[in-house]
Design a binder for these strands. Structure first.
Lengths: 339, 339
DNA sequence: GAAGTTTTCGTAAACGTTTTCGGAATCGCT
DNA sequence: AGCGATTCCGAAAACGTTTACGAAAACTTC
């Protein structure tokens, strides 16, 4: 089913058919209707390759997903929800969204280079940004419009949206200090991710602002997983002057923390105050519920979509959005225990 | 960076460049090397539209994901893991994998029709099949190679891979009967999904084979979610002659079941034996651990990839694979309590 | 009814590839 | 040196679209 077939079937030229389908002005209303009807009847839809070859545009936005790492964030389907909303928004604007999964064994930068060179998409969204991210450097050199979900060393040179990690750290620490905590621990990912350095810096600053002593021994590099949370908790429990509160950066870590506390006959809140990003359904199974920050993933996805289209239309468009997260304090926060 | 630019830069014709890059025989070894080097140096990669327009093939496999429904199966990232493995395998064969998320608000069949007509991919994998699935009927009419992850009414007419729901139901029921259970309940999704009818039929058959009475009142249509599990448990606890065992069809439902039991002062295993598909990391947080079936998602993904390529090469290739799941019995299985 | 204006449509080029075909250059052999 | 076989490469067509251009047809206006 070509445009040629369609034209032949209608007894008109392919040029007219194309114009009719693309809402060009110079085509008779009658013929336009005939064409449109025939198209749906015969199930014609313009071949993507032909169209984008001629147009120089694919009407497609790519979302690069590193499937190895993505497990980290996906306890309650962080990405799925964002993607779902993105697709809805892009669809309204006549764009398609395609997800490009990059397996852990592949070099993400090479993967990206190929995508760019082949012109698979008109714009691209990359995630899991690192402080020094070769993908971003390459994207900046290429002329392809892009948006990152996460900041980087070059954040002032490219459009980005990122979660409000500062707000998370600031608010929790302030709240914990109010409750009387003096030794507050935090976990950071061991990777070179931008999140890691952001958390470190914000933590040190926030601790300083509240007048507490900054103790680097309270920063725990650990695996971003449930077992990582478990290990950190064991470390904390073994400390001589142990921390009375703990900030996590991934929801499922809380499960590990809780189980470690239970094993030791301790309980969250009373013996260790716990907070985490991101509030999700799964956290309901923790008792007591953990203090967590809610993120509107649906609106985040739609915003990403809108912003990437902005960048597409004006490649100089710089967007820097810190996506809000709202705190919900629960019984996992309590004054520190007397020792 | 065209092939024309590249050819000009090398001082040779574009035909030769193309042949060199595509490993055609009639090109001098020296020039081939020059071309290859220049290509990586200048970062050239053939434009996807141009290539597929000429070749009539996109070197791309599409995976259609209904993001509304996908929440169901994604407690521990069912799809993410499968996709990850698929991508790895397809990459080895020189194919790209793209995920096409179809938002709940879109009509999946229309979505699919457009994908097919536009020729976005050489083959497609569809999931969440229904007993009567208009997508499958359409795919059969179109000539596009496809594979379904899930069976359907037309399962003998199309290649498919599906989980071993029969094995799950058979084995658990047999085991429960061994333990002395006489009233075994099962949950089925309320949708028109193929899984629902498959579970019903297998359940009735398996109950009959073990010599128990078949009681349709023990089949519970319920939401495939944690709260669905919760509700079903409440229903069961309210029954006059209540069930002593319960088969779930989605891992997270177990959380709802456990919490409902706890509220009632009952405990899994002793008061209600519980089994579920699919064993995942999250289930570790249940105490006692729930009897669950392990599925090798990595190998499943690779198999899907291999099979879809088979279908691609020979569109008459019929594959019908029941993907195994292996039972791991835990303390959530116990003889029925005396009443 | 002629001239001018507007509407409508067909023709053909272009997008970036791959691939067929034929021709030139090189080689091997006597 | 001459001839046939082989190796290598350039020219050009084709894939399915969109769109600039110009021509035909229809409509105005006097």
């Amino acid at each position: 089913m070509n445009i040629k077939d369609l034209a032949q079937h209608l007894g008109i030229s392919i040029g007219t058919v194309s114009r009719a389908l693309n809402d060009k002005p110079d085509v008779n209303a009658k013929t336009r209707e005939r064409v449109l009807n025939a198209a749906v009847e015969l199930g014609y839809s313009a071949n993507a390759s032909g169209r984008s070859l001629r147009r120089g545009t694919t009407q497609t936005i790519a979302f690069m997903l590193e499937t190895g790492q993505s497990e980290l964030r996906s306890g309650d389907n962080f990405f799925m929800r964002v993607i779902d909303a993105m697709q809805a928004e892009l669809d309204d604007e006549g764009y398609d969204l395609i997800i490009l999964p990059c397996h852990s064994k592949n070099d993400p930068t090479e993967f990206l280079k190929r995508v760019i060179a082949r012109g698979t998409a008109d714009a691209i969204v990359v995630t899991a940004t690192m402080k020094n991210d070769p993908r971003i450097e390459f994207l900046l050199k290429s002329r392809l419009p892009f948006l990152t979900l996460g900041r980087s060393r070059l954040e002032d040179q490219h459009p980005w949206i990122d979660l409000d990690f500062e707000g998370y750290v600031d608010q929790t620490i302030r709240k914990l200090v109010e409750l009387g905590h003096k030794r507050i621990a935090i976990t950071v990912p061991p990777t070179r991710s931008n999140i890691a350095s952001l958390l470190r810096e914000t933590y040190e600053r926030a601790i300083g602002e509240t007048g507490l002593d900054f103790d680097p021994g309270l920063i725990f590099e650990c695996e971003v997983s449930e077992s990582g949370g478990n290990q950190v908790t064991h470390q904390i429990l073994g400390m001589p002057n142990r921390a009375t509160a703990l900030l996590l950066n991934y929801e499922l870590m809380a499960f590990g923390v809780y189980s470690a506390l239970q094993e030791a006959g301790l309980s969250p809140g009373r013996d260790l105050s716990v907070a985490t990003l991101r509030r999700s359904k799964l956290l309901r199974f923790l008792n007591p519920p953990v203090t967590a920050f809610e993120i509107d993933l649906n609106e985040l996805g739609r915003t990403i979509a809108r912003e990437v289209l902005q960048v597409l239309r004006d490649n100089t468009h710089k967007t820097s959005i810190v996506w809000p997260a709202t705190m919900a304090v629960t019984e996992s926060f309590a004054p520190p225990a007397e020792r």
